[in-house]
Computed example of a mutant assay.
Amino acid sequence: MSIVEYEKRFTTLSRFAPEMVRTEYMKCRRFEQGLDWQIRSRVSMLEIYIYSELVNKAKIAERDVMEFQNRREHFKKKRFDSGVGPSRQRSSDVTTTTEQSRAQTDARSARPGNSRGGGSSRGRGSWRPPARPNTA
């Protein structure tokens, strides 16, 4: 429901519960509570205590939210139509990254002196001289 429709319904229903909208402040808070969360999050931080001003700001917030959603949909459609969908792109990126890391691991393990288990201890401060064979 749009803000205009909501405001009309709110005004109509508030006639049946005047104690809930007794003051301008109460009316504003009650109106805010019924707003969509995206609009409410933009309007509530303004702390507006005049009902007509709150309704106007809610209309502006609604327009901004709709514009944002339209841009988002347009962007999604544009990406989908170009053939580069997010799922295709991600799966190829993951494959490429996995293949690259495997190639790097294989290249490291193929170096002389490297074993699969421990790798090189250079730079870790844990170097020990090689054990001498028992000659006795």
Rank of each mutant, 00 (worst) to 15 (best):
S91F: 07
N56T: 01
V4A: 13
V94P: 11
S121C: 11
D81S: 05
R122Q: 02
Y49L: 14
S109E: 10
D36H: 02
I3S: 04
P129C: 10
M26H: 00
L46R: 12
T12C: 10
A58L: 12
G117R: 13
E53V: 15
V21H: 01
F68V: 07
N56C: 01
L54K: 06
W37N: 15
S126T: 14
S82T: 04
R9P: 02
Y49K: 15
A58I: 13
C28P: 05
Y25N: 00
A103V: 08
L46H: 03
V21K: 04
R111N: 13
G119V: 01
P86I: 14
R40M: 02
E53L: 14
Y25C: 05
F80W: 06
Q38D: 03
Q89T: 12
V94F: 04
P18A: 02
E19W: 04
R71S: 07
A17Y: 08
V43G: 05
E62C: 06
R124E: 01
R116P: 12
T105C: 14
T11E: 12
E99F: 03
M26K: 07
E7S: 02
V84N: 00
E19N: 10
S87C: 09
T135V: 14
Y51C: 10
G85I: 05
R29W: 00
A136G: 13
R108C: 11
P130N: 03
S120V: 04
I39S: 06
V21D: 01
V4Q: 07
D64Y: 02
I39V: 07
E47F: 14
K76N: 06
Q100F: 10
A131V: 08
R15Y: 02
G34I: 11
T95E: 08
S52E: 15
G118H: 02
K8F: 10
R63P: 07
Y49G: 14
D93M: 13
V94K: 09
P112I: 12
R22A: 09
A136I: 09
H74Y: 15
P86Y: 09
G117L: 12
S126A: 13
G85T: 08
F80M: 00
S120R: 09
P129D: 10
A107T: 15
K78C: 02
V65C: 09
M1R: 08
K57I: 08
F31R: 03
D36V: 06
S41D: 06
M66S: 05
W127M: 12
W127I: 12
T105A: 12
G83D: 03
R40I: 05
R29V: 03
D81G: 05
Q100V: 13
S14I: 15
T95I: 01
S41P: 06
P130H: 01
V55C: 07
Y49Q: 15
A61L: 02
R63S: 03
R88A: 08
E73D: 13
E24G: 03
A110T: 02
D93T: 12
A17R: 08
R88S: 10
A61Y: 00
W37C: 14
M66R: 02
E53R: 11
K76E: 03
D64G: 09
V55G: 09
Q89A: 11
S2G: 11
H74T: 15
P18F: 03
R71A: 11
D93E: 13
T95M: 09
L35V: 00
R132G: 08
G34D: 04
A110I: 01
I3E: 00
T97I: 14
W127L: 12
S109Y: 06
H74G: 15
S121V: 11
